[in-house]
């Protein structure tokens, strides 16, 4: 086995007095795809935000691509280059066109020449099936299109790991599929993916492993089939019965 791409050991985090993540141990292998689910407020977002240091952990270790996350700003920058993130609210830059959204980081962070960055951006915009929208502003696109741009924007940095925080939760129902389709295609490229989602169909189709979190802890993890048809913990059973009943 090669070295895992993400290694989290004994990680704890507090928001003030509130113990939001408790003794998290998690290793992710290269090209592994993990779906994280759990009730609202269980710490799923906080966990994946610790991986690219949008949140700071207070105890334990996180090592990403051999780089340990400490207070060292240089290390943090290096990790963020390797890790892409897609947010629930898209967070596109509204003052820039779709193309500029995609070329910004390659140009300013990776120092890619503009022409090359634009070529790369068009390639990824084609992969998410909206090359014709390149010159529009995000405000002119539908939610599903915006989220696909957000995915393309992250991919333009050629990350080794992609984090998704409920990428379809803010979308109208008819747009969820177009985003999930793009994510499924991404999965076929052997990208390492950590996806917080309640789309169980996606989890079954794509995930190698499903992690269930509750109250800041990893309560259960298993292969998708086992996880859905044969959950061990009572909390998992309760949660599954709630999300599958509708």
């Amino acid at each position: 086995m090669s070295e895992p791409i993400i290694r989290i050991e004994g990680m704890n985090k507090w928001f003030g007095q509130f113990h939001v993540l408790r003794d998290i141990d998690l290793t992710v292998n290269r090209a592994e795809r993990i779906v994280i689910c759990g009730p609202s407020g269980s710490g799923k977002s906080t966990l994946i935000r610790c991986i690219n240091r949008l949140e700071e952990h207070q105890k334990g270790t996180i090592v990403v691509e051999g780089i340990e996350l400490t207070g060292d700003l240089k290390q943090i920058d290096n990790v963020r280059r390797e890790v892409g993130m897609v947010f629930q609210q898209f967070n596109l830059f509204p003052h820039l066109t779709v193309l500029e959204n995609c070329t910004l980081a390659p140009i300013w962070v990776r120092r890619t020449p503009r022409a090359e960055a634009e070529e790369l951006a068009m390639e990824y915009l084609t992969r998410v099936k909206i090359p014709e929208q390149a010159l529009k502003y995000p405000g002119q696109l539908s939610g599903g299109q915006q989220q696909r741009v957000a995915i393309a924007r992250s991919l333009c940095m050629r990350p080794k790991i992609m984090l998704f925080d409920e990428p379809t939760s803010a979308l109208d129902p008819e747009m969820i599929k177009e985003v999930l389709d793009v994510m499924v295609e991404l999965a076929e490229t052997e990208m390492t993916m950590l996806v917080v989602t309640h789309e169980m169909g996606f989890a079954r189709q794509v995930a190698h492993r499903v992690i269930f979190m509750d109250e800041g802890q990893i309560v259960e993890q298993n292969e998708p089939e086992e996880f859905f048809y044969n959950p061990k913990s009572d909390r998992t059973k309760l949660f599954l019965s709630q999300i599958l009943s509708h």
């Binding site: 892409g84 993130m85 947010f87 596109l92 980081a105 962070v109």
Partner: peptide
Amino acid sequence: EAAQALGL
């Protein structure tokens, strides 16, 4: 956050 996540 989006800017940070992109490495800016």
